[in-house]
Amino acid sequence: MADSRIYSAAALSARAALAGVEPEPGVLKHDSILHVKGVERHFGGITAVNVDQLDIQRGSITALIGPNGAGKTTLFNVLTGFDPPDAGKWQFDGTEMSKVSAHKMAVKGMVRTFQLTKSLTKLSVIENMKLGAIDQVGESWWNALFPLRWKAQEAIVEKRADELLSRFTMGHMRDEYAGTLSGGQRKLLEMARALMTQPRLVMLDEPMAGVNPALKQSLNEHIRSLRDEGMTILFIEHDMDMVHDISDWVVVMSEGRIIAEGTPAQISENTSVIEAYLGAHQGNTMFEEKH
């Protein structure tokens, strides 16, 4: 892949940290922020997720790819507490998370977005954003009755929300209902809202689905800039251009298992990945075009 882009310092250090890692499923990273061990999720007789080990490098952009039904979203749901696992443990920054309920994940610094965008349509864009801030005094019903107790914090939250909105070029929409936004703008809003929780790990479930090409480019830039600010990004994506473009590391799932890991270049050459996508002995056109 001809690569003439200028990398940020964070990108270079993430790539350097991953350079020496063996491209094998479940391989341990030098500095992991999320460590998953033996997570299983069954639906009746179907094993949706069966991950022996998964390590996510801190400060990297990791892509989670795989054919439809590979269990990517189910793994997300399990890791973020939305779906109880049948077995397994995972640690986030050294904290055991397998017993933590979904609403405490964001408080601990791990936030997710959804494949089907969940913008809160009857709230304005700025209210959507302010909802994201955690530890708000005025969110207790008793304190809510005394505006003096929460007005100061609210102003700080609003300032941060406005900054994030203008960074995502949505400042002009701040007072519109979120329900009036386009699909792509909703994706942006959801990502910006997730950032209001001040996370260390951002988990994006198909951030590019239904987004027009122009907006895709700017979403890419936004995701890169998050890493440059020190956040770790784990995202599910089907758009291979994007995966090649921005990820430092790629994890491939198929039928609930992790079948391959490696840098984007290593994954393009991995025959088991091509087989998973296209079925065995089906040729190797999928990644060839990129070279």
Partner: peptide, 9 residues
């Protein structure tokens, strides 16, 4: 679910 993912019980 959106609210839950943003850390509210």
């Amino acid at each position: 679910d959106a609210v839950r993912s943003l850390g509210k019980n």
